[in-house]
Simulated assay, not measured.
Amino acid sequence: MTCRIVSYNILAPILANRPEHYFKCQLEYLQIDHQWNLIQSHLEQEIMQNENTIICLQELTLTILPKFELFFRRMNYTFFHNLYGERRKDYMGVGMAIPYSIQLNSISIIKIGDHIRSMSKAFEKQTNLFTWKWDFYQLVKSKLIEVVSDPWETAMNRTNTLICVQITINNKSIYIGTYHMPCLYKEPDVMLIHASMVKDLMFQLAGGQDFILAGDFNIKPWDLCYKLLTEKDYVGCNMPESSSYEISYRSNTELVLKSAYREKNGAEPMYTNFSHTPPSPNFCATLDYIFFNGSLTVEKVLELPDHPSGDSYPDETHPSDHLMIAATFRL
């Protein structure tokens, strides 16, 4: 028995419809109707051509949510989602769809920032003359010098949410999770905290059973976060210190993940994200992954191109600046 895991950052319509940002894209390819027709076609093909297809979505937003609700109802799927983003980003979040035919045992929806906060305790302040002088000094200092933020505080304040379900297929229990990592390239410590926390949380939720974790992790295969997720006892991984909190969490460096594409092809895809924008001209890199742990075997993966065509995604055949990725697992 197999299951097919599809992961797709669909590109939020509110982010796509910015001609000044995707200035190398034709205007018609940035419209929601064009986006939706292609997304629907891609997903329907995956569902019809594979058994037990589970869909993981990132950059799901309020505007396009009703279309997905109707689509998955028509395809006989149960659809779960959590929209956690800011209003200006149309409450962007994540979603997961499971066929009615698959037994659904449990659902966990966890805000990683809140999970981090549950393992943190703020340092107690001693109120005396010295601390008053110290607080005054810090206040003056903050006005004159750019103060470096506490990465743990930043990590706690992120609302990114993990959706994890436990399902049974042919008497085989398995956990499936999806996550969209905070895109904070200038604050790598925050991404390191979230990557480690999500990994360890999936191991905790699965409780020794097989699991799959798919999504847009905003990390490249050579980044520190990728090594933390995939290399046992990686020596270069040290959690940052906190200036404000006592952190009880310790990253479990013995628990690591395998990547479906690397297991099957010997390497990660050449790219899963391609766009030309003012902040990142000609950006082309792998950011999306299907990680797993346990006795699962990767039978096949969705074939991806070696290099992009055109000047930038979205285009005539790509509704998002991300490629859809997929893997079939033998349970």
Rank of each mutant, 00 (worst) to 15 (best):
1 M>T: 07
2 T>F: 10
3 C>L: 14
4 R>K: 13
6 V>I: 15
7 S>R: 01
8 Y>H: 04
8 Y>Q: 01
9 N>Y: 04
10 I>W: 14
14 I>R: 09
14 I>G: 06
14 I>N: 03
22 Y>A: 07
24 K>D: 09
24 K>W: 02
25 C>R: 06
28 E>R: 14
28 E>G: 02
31 Q>Y: 04
33 D>Q: 15
34 H>Y: 05
37 N>W: 04
38 L>R: 11
42 H>I: 11
42 H>K: 14
58 Q>R: 00
61 T>V: 10
63 T>C: 07
70 L>R: 04
71 F>K: 04
73 R>H: 14
74 R>K: 15
75 M>G: 01
80 F>N: 01
80 F>I: 08
83 L>Q: 02
86 E>Q: 11
92 M>I: 15
94 V>K: 01
95 G>E: 02
95 G>P: 14
95 G>F: 14
100 Y>G: 00
103 Q>W: 03
109 I>H: 05
115 H>V: 02
115 H>W: 13
119 M>P: 00
124 E>I: 09
125 K>D: 12
127 T>W: 15
127 T>V: 13
128 N>R: 08
131 T>R: 11
131 T>E: 14
133 K>D: 10
137 Y>A: 14
138 Q>D: 08
140 V>P: 00
141 K>G: 02
146 E>D: 12
147 V>S: 06
150 D>Q: 11
152 W>E: 14
155 A>V: 11
162 L>R: 00
163 I>Y: 05
165 V>A: 04
166 Q>I: 00
174 I>H: 05
174 I>R: 07
174 I>P: 12
175 Y>D: 10
175 Y>I: 01
176 I>R: 04
177 G>K: 00
181 M>N: 11
183 C>I: 02
189 D>I: 00
192 L>E: 14
197 M>R: 09
200 D>C: 08
201 L>W: 10
202 M>N: 00
203 F>A: 02
205 L>E: 04
208 G>Y: 07
210 D>K: 08
210 D>V: 12
214 A>L: 00
214 A>T: 03
216 D>F: 12
218 N>I: 00
220 K>E: 12
226 Y>S: 09
227 K>C: 01
233 D>A: 11
234 Y>V: 07
237 C>L: 04
243 S>N: 08
243 S>Y: 10
247 I>W: 01
247 I>Y: 01
249 Y>D: 03
250 R>Q: 15
251 S>P: 02
252 N>C: 05
261 Y>R: 13
264 K>P: 01
269 P>Q: 08
273 N>G: 06
275 S>P: 07
276 H>K: 00
280 S>E: 12
284 C>Q: 13
291 F>Y: 12
291 F>C: 07
292 F>K: 09
299 E>N: 13
299 E>D: 13
302 L>A: 03
303 E>P: 09
307 H>T: 02
312 S>E: 11
313 Y>D: 04
313 Y>R: 09
315 D>Y: 11
323 L>I: 11
323 L>E: 12
